[in-house]
């Protein structure tokens, strides 16, 4: 009894903190279905803000660009990350150190510093700002995270496996695809997930390097945020839904796969 009483303040505190974490998310989702512009009273259920969002071509363009950039940046940075990680795992300490130091720069630097650096680079080279610069920048900040999540898996691999595969007649490429990659899949998936969400959620770097009307969802919200506009809530809810779906799929898929394996064994 005594023990329980002592736990009550702790429980209230934890409850309040969780409410604090989820209040803005809940607020956005609930008020995106509101039939009025009110910020505090939920009048009745309506899909009008979603209708407005789907008819707003700027908003739909930004959704399109966000998804296309995120998918392309994920695929390219994952493939590049796999090759680079395997490459540096087979190279000497100097090379490894150089790559690690380079990768640390975008991870440790404030985003705004990375952003203005890229802005000046693209402008100095007279690359016109837009889709290309956005994609290049996203690939640039995604690769370090992919390498970071693959490296520990590579380190725990038996170095003799590769030699064995080559001795048994694999070409180097076959050895890579059939022997090494299957053993680091979990690292690759983790890296790809981080890359996708980083690209999908990015604001600061995108905001500085893009131009010519190519915007992502975050930039869209930032430029529209000054005035109260419930359409932003609809757009935000769309983002929340997509990210939650991605997280659920990635968390549930391994469980389903394992159950299937168990069934096969039986």
């Amino acid at each position: 009894m005594m023990k329980n009483k002592r736990h009550i303040p702790a429980k209230i505190f934890v409850g309040l903190m969780i409410a604090f974490f989820y209040l803005p998310i809940l607020y956005t989702v609930v008020f995106s279905f509101n039939s009025t512009r009110s910020l505090s009273v939920f009048s009745s259920f309506s899909l009008q803000w979603y209708e407005k969002m789907f008819h707003n071509s700027d908003m739909m363009d930004s959704v399109f660009y966000t998804i296309v950039i995120a998918v392309l940046a994920t695929i390219i940075s994952t493939v590049a990350g796999i090759f680079t990680a395997i490459g540096i795992s087979k190279s000497n300490k100097v090379l490894k150190g150089v790559v690690e130091q380079m990768n640390n720069l975008p991870i440790m630097n404030p985003e705004i510093v990375t952003a203005i650096g890229l802005l000046m680079l693209f402008s100095s080279l007279a690359v016109s700002k837009g889709f290309t610069t956005l994609l290049l920048s996203h690939i640039m900040f995604c690769i370090p995270y992919v390498i970071l999540s693959i490296m520990p898996k590579l380190r725990s691999l038996d170095p003799n496996i590769l030699d064995a595969a080559l001795d048994l007649g694999c070409t180097p490429f076959q050895a890579l695809i059939k022997v090494i990659v299957p053993q680091i899949t979990s690292g690759i998936f983790a890296g790809a997930l981080i890359a996708f969400t980083m690209s999908f959620d990015d604001f600061v770097i995108s905001y500085f390097v893009t131009g010519n009307g190519v915007n992502n969802i975050s930039i869209m919200i930032y430029t529209m945020a000054k005035r109260i506009n419930p359409t932003i809530n609809a757009l935000s809810t769309l983002i929340i839904a997509i990210i939650t779906a991605v997280l659920l799929i990635l968390n549930i898929t391994p469980i389903i796969l394992e159950k299937r394996k168990e069934k096969k064994r039986k």
């Binding site: 998310i25 607020y27 956005t28 959620d201 604001f203 975050s218 919200i221 930032y222 983002i239």
Partner: peptide
């Protein structure tokens, strides 16, 4: 979830 979305809320 996007920082900007949560901040805007």
């Amino acid at each position: 979830i996007n920082m900007l979305v949560r901040t805007y809320a």
